[in-house]
């Protein structure tokens, strides 16, 4: 089934001076990336904790407010992100096989998905913004929201939307960073930079980051858009 990748010990020139060999270097990079992702988990973790606390405390209110979010839009975004994750995974696979066209193709798909995600997010946010459902003093609640949600006090609604904007905003920020990083990676592949064409690890690291962005959304979607009563 699985085929051995075409990497041997001819890669000594890629190895930085502090490492003994290529194996040690690539393993260090991957462990380092995971250690970084561990910090990212804790970074989002505090917000998830706040979410769970207030959801537990204000479950009925939150349930009514969440009806104002469009689960179809969220669902489309979930699909888009899942597909982008697949595209990155395939791009990394192509990088292992040193298939330049494949990598560039799949990364382009990823970028399109990421952009699509942000566009949909933009529509969701701007729709809310125009209704006055926004952060800050000018928070308006009542007009233009679904009739269930109108029963809820504006304060609790604002708390809900604070969590919503913080968590999806932080996630969106990670998407933007991802787009930039993938852009840089694509440029390197495009220019045939041997640092990426001869060594699959940089592509793999970017891939790991992008999958993490996907992971966060996998949790955000049911938590915000599909809340049970």
């Amino acid at each position: 089934m699985a085929t051995e990748a075409a990497h041997g010990h001819d890669q000594q020139w890629l190895v930085h001076h502090q490492y003994e060999d290529y194996e040690q270097q690539s393993e260090s990079y991957i462990v380092g990336m995971w250690a970084f992702l561990v910090t990212e988990i804790m970074f989002f973790g505090a917000l998830f904790l706040a979410y769970v606390l207030y959801r537990w405390q204000y479950q009925p209110e939150f349930y009514l407010i969440h009806k104002d979010l469009d689960w179809v839009m969220g669902g489309i975004n979930t699909t888009v992100l899942l597909f982008s994750s697949l595209a990155v995974a395939l791009a990394v696979r192509c990088a292992m096989l040193q298939d330049r066209k494949g990598v560039l193709g799949w990364l382009t798909v990823t970028q399109l998905c990421a952009a699509g995600f942000l566009v949909i997010k933009y529509f969701e946010w701007s729709h809310k913004y125009h209704k006055g459902v926004w952060l800050g003093e000018g928070f308006k609640w009542g007009e233009g929201v679904t009739k269930y949600a109108q029963d809820v006090s504006a304060n609790t609604a604002q708390l809900f939307y604070s969590l919503y904007y913080c968590m999806t905003g932080l996630h969106g920020f990670h998407v933007v960073i991802g787009i930039i990083v993938i852009g840089i990676l694509m440029r390197m592949w495009f220019k045939n930079n041997p640092l990426v064409t001869k060594d699959y690890v940089p592509t793999e690291l970017v891939g790991l980051y992008w999958h993490f962005v996907d992971l966060v959304w996998i949790f955000l979607y049911p938590l915000f858009y599909l809340m049970p009563r």
Binding site: E40, M42, F43, G45, A46, L135, G136, N155, L159, S162
Partner: peptide, 20 residues
């Protein structure tokens, strides 16, 4: 990272009154 995001929330609280 936990304190980093917490401090960031205080900054947002000052800027936007997010209420957390």
């Amino acid at each position: 990272p936990v304190v980093a995001i917490t401090l960031l929330c205080v900054v947002l609280e000052r800027a936007f009154r997010i209420g957390i």
